[in-house]
Write a protein that binds this DNA or RNA. Structure first.
Length: 404
DNA sequence: CGACGGGACGC
DNA sequence: CGACGGGACGC
């Protein structure tokens, strides 16, 4: 096992912040395999495999220290879910808690993707986005304003889709912006319940050769910005992930909720995944349900998906239309939280193996997977869920997961 | 589930 | 004189 050099003593483990990874591996994975796997993402300053004091055997966890937070974040995003040595389980990768922290809670992407900046008071949210989009794909920008006069307070938030993008912005943007990671908005209360999400800009890049599942009539692009706090619900969702998911996997997952009519993995100019996908349902209820069930869902093992509403361009300007949508959505939420009208009739899994069952790829039959307002519902357990995906045969994927 | 070492600078 | 340094979201 390699030691940290003397200059890499414990007091430097958190410098710069969020530059150290917490890696959950198999006990069999060696330090060399770890170093080889992670060093391609940046300057690895130390690898430390945690071992049992007595037996000296690996406990299956280790720490990897990078020189920069952006390197650590990139490695996390790319390595999470990967198999390091053949025959071992996929690794889970998180930003390590700071050494002084006693909490052992996972650091969530939520805490790593939003930055807090100081900007000229003349900046509009468009200006803010134009300034920071060079560091990564932006989910939304918000400027703090006087709620009465509407004038800017010269402070803003920028939410990226990936931790590495936020880290790169902090490292590389003009120092006058004083960019830092934003503290989570609601620390004490349920942090998962974000609603909405703004996006606009280049979601158009759909080359149909790669989008075999896209609905032919699907309207692309021009998704207007929307206040992420407004609580609006739409039929469109944006899913972001650290894992390298395929179009097929994302399609299969979101297709579990009936009513999906469009699903597209966003790609860059080179056809590489940008780590997020746009999904649209035929109705509000399905979208609300999909967001509720899949936001925070681990897919593949350990990788928490982030799912938010995005503006679908429908007219929500009128108070009547807005209230109607909120009403429907509230009904759906209530149904979700309370387990629906008849939770007792949980569907019988098609294939059962103890606590696990098989979910087949294309399941749109309302008899098997009815919409959330019906009496039986698919229920995906959110937290300690272990999903394992593997290609069974061409174009077919299965999901082993805990269902209850 | 899966959270924190071994070893000794240089006055 | 004249502008540094500061910093938080309607639950």
């Amino acid at each position: 096992m390699e030691e940290y050099p003397a200059k890499q003593a414990p007091e430097n483990l958190d410098d710069p912040p969020n530059s150290r990874l917490f890696v959950v591996t198999s006990r069999a994975v060696t330090e060399d395999a770890l170093r080889d796997g992670f060093s391609v993402f940046g300057e690895v300053q130390g690898v430390w495999v945690v071992k049992d004091k007595q037996t000296k055997e690996s406990k299956g966890i280790c720490y990897v220290k990078f020189a920069k937070s952006s390197q650590a974040c990139l490695a996390m995003e790319e390595m999470h879910g990967k198999v390091l040595s053949e025959g071992t389980k996929p690794v889970k990768v998180f930003i390590a808690q700071s050494r002084s922290s006693t909490r052992h809670r996972d650091v969530e992407d939520e805490e790593l993707t939003r930055i807090f900046v100081m900007i000229p008071k003349t900046f509009s949210e468009e200006d803010l986005k134009d300034t920071f989009k060079e560091y990564g794909d932006i989910e939304y920008c918000v400027i703090i304003k006087n709620k009465f006069t509407g004038e800017s307070k010269g402070l803003g938030y920028v939410r990226y889709y990936k931790p590495s993008q936020a880290a790169i912005a902090i490292e590389n943007c003009d120092k006058t912006y004083r960019a830092i990671l934003a503290e989570p908005r609601t620390k004490a209360t349920a942090p998962e319940d974000y609603s909405g999400g703004a996006s606009r800009g280049d979601y158009a890049g759909g080359n149909d050769a790669m989008n075999q599942y896209a609905a032919p009539m699907a309207d692309q692009g021009n998704y207007q910005a929307m206040d992420y706090r407004s609580g609006d619900f739409t039929r469109c969702l944006m899913m972001s992930t650290r894992a390298a998911l395929t179009q097929e996997q994302i399609f299969a997952l979101f297709d579990l909720i009936p009513g999906m009519e469009y699903c597209e993995l966003q790609r860059d100019a080179y056809g590489m995944s940008k780590g997020h996908a746009l999904i649209r349902y035929s109705n509000l209820g399905s979208a609300v349900y999909a967001k509720e069930k899949l936001n925070g869902f681990e897919f593949p093992p350990g990788n928490r998906l982030v799912v938010n509403f995005v503006d679908d361009g429908e007219d929500r300007s009128s108070p009547v239309g807005r209230m109607a949508m909120q009403f429907v959505a509230t009904q759906m939420m209530s149904s979700v939280w309370n387990g629906g009208p008849s939770t007792s009739q949980v569907m019988k899994p098609p294939v059962s193996a103890g606590n696990q069952c098989l979910i087949y790829k294309r399941v749109s039959d309302p008899e098997l997977f009815p919409p959330p307002h019906c009496s039986t519902r698919l229920t995906l357990k959110k937290t300690p869920l272990k999903a394992f995906f593997s290609p069974i045969k061409e174009n077919t994927y299965s999901c082993f997961s805990n269902i209850y």
